[in-house]
Design a binder for these strands. Structure first.
Lengths: 159, 159
DNA sequence: AGTAGCACTATGCATATTGCCCAGTGATGT
DNA sequence: ACATCACTGGGCAATATGCATAGTGCTACT
């Protein structure tokens, strides 16, 4: 179910130096190439590793402003709102949540002024009752997974 | 500053089929290998593409519960809180924001019960005044970048 | 006009990597 | 004792990579 220590080391290695291939990884980890190959295949088929897509920085694309919007949805309009938000390119992520709001979405925009346009487009839809937005100022911890992988790998055995 | 249409097609292609190499990409895009090579180098040096790290699914690692916590910080304790949260593996992401709270962080946990442990660890730190947590139920739009890339690429020229 | 700079094409070549095969070994469970 | 499984270590053909070259069309500058 979880991953073992070698899996963890492999994932961390790939996260740190994505350009290395299977052969180089096997050298670094001190195991045979076939082992790395098999581990990778298993991790992918188990869904632990979803893929190796490029990580794109929205800021470098011209969208330096990030914000999180909490949306309150009119009863029974959830599906329509989801469909609507999916069509907005600036909506990078959408979750339905418990708590004060009903949905939380991550937005990007070209500027603070442009954010207004994005928000207007997001909330300009029947079914959204209220929206409250928090603009991101700093991002002290960018999306990371390595510490979690290390914990998950370490739990299983003691190295 | 932004990216052109070929850049956009390249990024989308790589996002859809990450395992293809430079050579195969050049065939798909109908351009020379050197061109793809040069574009990739430029995109990486410009920071548009941060890397090709593996996308790991926390759920498959044994952390199926995701939550967002809004934290209110005592004046002047920001740096300490950041340092503290960095040490918690279950904190996948941390932002400082405008609005009601001062920080927003993304958490994962092994279960709803385990989430309590994580939150206790997160807020068990002088400097955090108040925390409100929203548990993610569904994720209709997983983190995506393709629509934004297409928009950014399309803006520049009309194909 | 003339020219320099730039991006792209097209090609070649040595080296490295991949995918696939196999036989052997040690640990585990029946 | 025996089957199963993961790992090792090796070999092989096919492929991809990094690097270099020369030619072409376009743009910008003088």
């Amino acid at each position: 179910m979880a991953i073992d220590h070698l899996d963890g080391r492999l994932i961390v290695l790939l996260a740190r130096e994505p350009r290395i291939g299977v052969l180089e990884a096997s050298r670094r980890l001190g195991v045979a190439r076939g082992t790395v190959q098999a581990r990778l295949d298993r991790l992918r088929s188990q869904g632990v590793i979803r893929g190796f897509g490029p990580e794109v920085d929205p800021a470098a694309l011209g969208y330096p402003v990030t914000a999180f919007a909490t949306l309150e949805i009119k009863q029974g309009q959830g599906a329509d709102v989801r469909a609507h938000l999916t069509t907005v390119p600036e909506v990078l992520e959408l979750h339905t949540t418990t708590g004060h709001g009903d949905m939380l979405c991550r937005l990007v925009a070209r500027s603070n002024a442009d954010l207004q346009r994005v928000i207007d487009r997001v909330v300009g839809f029947e079914g959204i009752v209220r929206a409250s937005t928090a603009i991101v100022m700093e991002n002290p911890v960018p999306l990371r997974i390595i510490p979690l992988v290390e914990q998950a790998a370490g739990d299983t055995e003691g190295c």
